[in-house]
């Protein structure tokens, strides 16, 4: 039996700046050092002894990692230590990134959202995480920081395989950047779970639609999935099916079919792979329709 034990013994440090954090993790391995963001997953990992770090670096005191800012180029910059609750209450998010707001609101309950962070949801590299699919379809890029400097990469490229990220041991996710969505765009995240709330995601589908100027055809469509494969992923082939076309039932069927072909959901005691595929098929179509509806209704409004 694996017990949910009390926390293992560790040393705790509370750096005040990103530089300090980078210094603390330089030259260490993930086995010995653990970054603690909100802690809602990390504490459980330690209690289950999945991770037994020698040292825990608490990030709650690093004020410079906590921000939601609109940049001059129109993009949105979000600090990794921004709590989900803060995202929900940020005017910029509510006004321009409805997909992000909608996704965030579906995660956990108030207690969890008050503590869990956007960075933690990404860096945890869980295939069932809800924010990564939404952020991917919004075109998110992330900034990895280390003593060696910063590097930016698309979130799409962050999860090479199950439970892993491309971040080196001395790097941390510091910032997420979202381009300003086109005016005639809209997105939705459909999270399927057995109850109405507070569940692990069985399948999550994020669809982001950009309409052509005439509002009749898809200029762009992005699709990303939670629990559709060992990692969160974008269904790149499915995304191309409707590009340049109008919304039709046949077109949606074709997209869903392609998305299913690109997916490889696993069978576990939580859900059968076969059922997850059915969900991917159904929710892909539904998400695209909803996103299309949102994009159409926003068409002509000022960005």
């Amino acid at each position: 039996m694996t017990y949910l034990k009390r926390l293992p013994k560790f040393e705790y440090v509370s750096p005040r700046s990103l530089d300090e954090v980078c210094g603390l993790i330089a030259g260490t391995s993930d086995d010995e050092v653990m970054l603690l963001a909100g802690g809602t997953d990390a504490i459980l990992q330690m209690r289950r002894r999945e991770r037994v770090p020698r040292r825990v670096i608490g990030l709650k005191g690093v004020a410079e990692l906590e921000f939601v800012r609109e940049r001059a180029d129109g993009s949105l910059a979000i600090g990794a230590m921004t709590a989900l609750h803060t995202l929900l209450s940020a005017p910029a998010v509510s006004q321009r990134y409805d997909l992000l707001r909608e996704t965030t609101a579906q995660i956990g309950g108030p207690e969890l959202r008050n503590v869990a962070t956007i960075g933690g949801n990404i860096a945890g590299a869980l295939p069932c995480a809800d924010l990564p699919p939404a952020l991917m379809t919004l075109g998110a890029r992330i900034r990895l920081s280390s003593q060696r400097g910063d590097r930016w990469l698309p979130l799409d490229e962050f999860f090479p395989e199950f439970g892993r990220t491309v971040a080196e041991d001395d790097e941390l996710v510091a910032e997420i950047s979202l381009p300003r969505p086109a005016s005639n765009s809209g997105g939705t995240y459909l999270k399927f779970h057995d109850r109405h709330s507070m569940d692990m995601t069985v399948v999550g589908v994020s669809a982001f639609v950009v309409l052509d100027d005439d509002g009749r055809t898809f200029r762009d469509l992005k699709l990303a999935y939670a629990n559709g494969a060992p990692t969160v992923f974008r269904a790149r082939r499915a995304e191309t099916v409707l590009r340049g076309h109008a919304l039709t039932d046949e077109g949606l069927e074709a997209v869903a079919e392609t998305a299913c072909a690109e997916s490889s959901p696993r069978t576990s005691w939580r859900a059968n792979g076969e059922y997850r595929l059915e969900l991917i098929r159904a929710l892909t179509k539904r998400a695209i329709r909803l996103a299309w509806g949102k994009a159409s209704s926003r068409k002509g409004t000022k960005p």
């Binding site: 109850r195 109405h196 709330s197 569940d199 692990m200 005691w269 939580r270």
Partner: peptide, 16 residues
């Protein structure tokens, strides 16, 4: 028992 946790042993919540 695969789900000895309230995360996976799912009792109704107020929203259900």
């Amino acid at each position: 028992v695969m789900n000895p946790s309230f995360r996976d042993y799912k009792m109704p919540q107020a929203t259900d």
